[in-house]
Design a protein around this nucleic acid. Structure first.
Lengths: 148, 148
DNA sequence: ATGTATGCAAAGTATTTGCACAATC
DNA sequence: GATTGTGCAAATACTTTGCATACAT
């Protein structure tokens, strides 16, 4: 990934804070919070205001370059998206499908924090029903109760 | 689940706020935040201070009855733990194993929020390496680079 | 009666925002 | 030179905490 190219392609100006933040994100292997990113920048001799860090991070998230999540300590963690791998969910009742980003980055970070393990591969299968079918089912269940 | 029994067994006093909060948690099918729980209590005619809600929720989390997580909007969500189903991770290198709570509740809530789907079943397989082996590997990789 | 729980108000913490100045294109 | 980005300080929103009072056992 060429940082300058990435910024230019997204219509963003090339500035030291942005280049530094992207470089830090790229080189880290696990999730980082805003303050930690700022500290890393300081170690590189670049003083960036925390609000600039947050603004840059928000920007990158909107551009779908970055994933942002909270592991439970009320602090956001940020990781560059590696693959844009997605999951398809199919409703077991009406067979309608929807797509979503693979949720495993969050899980992998969580597992790493809790156990120290780094996940190298995952296989995830999900079975579920869509909102409409779930509601229909619930309505049936309650009318049956009344009718019985 | 008998609420009074549950409280008694954990050495907690039986109070209206606690009974109400537990009843609300038990009857809801998806994650709720503290403010929502308080509003539900008000609907039942019970006025509970928000700090009491938070304190009760913290208590239940410590007792491993409740799961607490942030779905990305800087607000905690709470769900009663259904099954105490756990996952075992085995290091692919040294074969050491560790256990952890199944991380899927959070993901299921997230999926529900993003797509509307309710997950009924999941199957998750993970392959990974423990911290020590990951560090050893990294050391080898860097010494090889230098040696080459 | 004793220890525990609650309400209230104040503090805390990560994040966001408004505005003036500075840098990039 | 026009537009976009940054720093600073103040604001925000959720959560936590200290303390006096009230309640459960």
């Amino acid at each position: 990934m060429n940082i300058q190219l990435l910024l230019r392609q997204n219509g963003l100006k090339i500035t030291k804070p942005r280049e530094t933040i992207l470089a830090i994100l790229r080189e880290a292997d696990h999730g980082m919070d805003a303050e930690w990113i700022r500290e890393q920048a300081v170690l590189r001799g670049i003083y960036i205001n925390l609000s600039t860090v947050y603004r840059t991070l928000d920007l990158l998230e909107e551009l779908n370059i970055l994933e942002k999540f909270d592991l439970g300590d009320h602090r956001y963690n940020y990781v560059l998206k590696k693959d844009h791998h997605r999951h398809t969910l199919t409703c077991e009742i009406c067979h309608k499908s929807v797509d979503m980003d693979c949720p495993m980055t969050k899980i992998e970070e969580l597992i790493n924090r809790e156990t120290g393990f780094s996940i190298k591969e995952h296989h995830l299968e999900l079975k579920g029903v869509c909102r409409e079918c779930a509601q229909k089912k619930e309505r049936n269940a309650s009318s049956q109760k009344k009718g019985a």
